[in-house]
């Protein structure tokens, strides 16, 4: 499987009219025999705000917060309410049509299943007498 560490490309372009800063989310990438698993932190974004698409061999993620209805004076501010964007190169051997995603507690989990041909296969050895 491709080295996903080098696969991630930062600096996805933000829509021109967006006034919110766009940050690259923190991610974990895991792999087992069946799939690659990407977990991205997108606090403040609900599932409605997430757009995932595959273009050629690139997985593009954009996550937007719902705009706040109210604005109050801040007494203290340690974080900025950013939107998120990043992209990943999909390694060979992934079944792009079967990529699935879900959100939970401000994290997005994307499952990239390996194509059957890319999975390790066990070949039965038969004894011949």
């Amino acid at each position: 499987m491709g080295d996903v560490m080098t696969v991630r490309e930062n600096g996805a372009t933000a829509p021109a009219k967006s006034r919110v800063r766009v940050a690259v989310p923190a991610v974990d990438v895991f792999e087992n025999a069946d799939e690659l698993l990407i977990v991205a932190e997108v606090p403040g974004v609900s599932s409605d705000g997430i757009e995932l698409r595959v273009e050629n061999d690139t997985l593009i993620l954009q996550a937007k917060r719902a705009p706040e209805k109210d604005s109050w004076p801040a007494l203290a501010r340690e974080y900025e309410e950013v939107d998120y964007a990043t992209r990943f190169r999909i390694p060979a051997g992934i079944d792009s049509s079967a990529i699935a995603a879900e959100t939970k507690n401000g994290t997005l989990t994307v499952r990239l299943p390996k194509a059957a041909a890319a999975k390790p296969r066990k070949i039965a050895v038969q004894a011949k007498n």
């Binding site: 932190e41 997108v42 606090p43 403040g44 109210d70 109050w72 004076p73 801040a74 007494l75 203290a76 501010r77 340690e78 974080y79 507690n105 401000g106 994290t107």
Partner: peptide, 26 residues
Amino acid sequence: AAPWPPMNVFETKEAFLVRAEVPGLA
């Protein structure tokens, strides 16, 4: 290291609001 979680504090007419980004916490 920056303190975790990062927090914002707002004041409304009736209340103080403290917000913290805690992705992954249930």
